[in-house]
């Protein structure tokens, strides 16, 4: 009994985050019909990029990428972007809560505000992958979608995506936290969003970038959002690309905890 007590305690602790994640998933479910329409538009974006690549690539390809590989790269990223980048809303919710003063109630909950936010968002992103990403992938599979041959690749890709999603959420959580100081988060958001898309390799492999920018992008947390998972999935790189994601997850978590602590002290409730 004494031995099982800590385990029971742990399962109770994790259960509340599981419930939050389910809520995040279920709340999106009511919009699934309109999200499916959006998936058609997303597939069109994928088609635009695929044909753009077709028109610019030399017949010999570019680096590790032949034209079919680029089709797979774009198809994979258009699918997984709905899990690691698009649809994250935690920054908006934090900003709105700061503006309305509801943030005070959010912070007095007997649980970590950071984990509460991340758990809810994670559920929402799992929904994004299933109802927005996978339909896009199915549509783009008519042009081309790679299926890895090695079973381990599936495992490493899943791990890379789970970590990528986490990094994406924490990035925008930090954007939201800046609202405690500035109320308005547009500038910070746009900066992070552009870096995520540009250095993340969502629309093109980052090897295309000029060498100094590539060096920067390769080791940035943004590469963990699209570029690294795509390279693992396409079997162009091995599981070693998981490590940058692990390191960035730890660093960003520590940073987010510290930022939340500072924000708590800075809290200034708006409204009556």
């Amino acid at each position: 009994m004494l031995l099982t007590a800590p385990l029971t305690n742990l399962s109770l602790k994790t259960r509340k985050y599981w419930v939050l994640m389910s809520r995040g998933f279920l709340q999106n479910l009511q919009y699934s019909a309109s999200h499916l329409i959006n998936a058609v538009a997303s597939a069109v974006f994928g088609i635009i990029y695929i044909y753009l690549w077709k028109s610019v690539m030399p017949p010999t390809g570019f680096g590790d990428y032949s034209y079919p590989t680029m089709v797979y790269y774009v198809s994979f990223n258009e699918t997984t972007m709905w899990f690691t980048q698009f649809g994250i809303r935690c920054h908006v919710r934090i900003r709105d809560a700061v503006r309305s003063g509801n943030i005070a109630q959010e912070l007095v909950r007997p649980m970590s505000f950071f984990l509460y936010t991340v758990a809810y968002e994670y559920g929402s992103m799992i929904y994004g992958l299933i109802f927005r990403g996978i339909p896009v992938g199915l549509m783009l599979s008519t042009i081309g979608f790679y299926l890895p041959k090695n079973p381990a690749t599936w495992f490493w890709t899943l791990l890379a995506l789970l970590l990528g999603c986490y990094i994406g959420i924490v990035d925008l959580y930090l954007v939201g936290i800046t609202a405690f100081w500035t109320t308005e988060i547009r500038t910070v958001y746009w900066t992070v969003a552009m870096l995520s898309l540009g250095l993340g390799g969502a629309s093109m492999p980052i090897e295309v970038l000029p060498a100094p920018v590539y060096g920067l992008a390769r080791w940035s947390p943004f590469a963990c959002l699209s570029f690294n998972p795509a390279r693992i999935y396409l079997e162009l790189s091995g599981a070693e690309l998981i490590w940058p994601a692990v390191v960035w997850s730890v660093v960003l978590t520590l940073f987010a905890h510290r930022a939340t602590e500072l924000a708590r002290r800075k809290l200034e409730v708006q409204g009556g």
Binding site: L52, M57, M204
Partner: peptide
């Protein structure tokens, strides 16, 4: 500030095209 941010954001789209053309010369 929002105008400047949006100009910068919009230039991202063109920078994507510019990088592609810098690398591959023509579309």
């Amino acid at each position: 500030s929002s105008t400047l941010i949006q100009v910068a954001g919009g230039l991202y789209d063109f920078s994507l095209i510019a990088v592609l053309l810098w690398r591959f010369k023509s579309i």
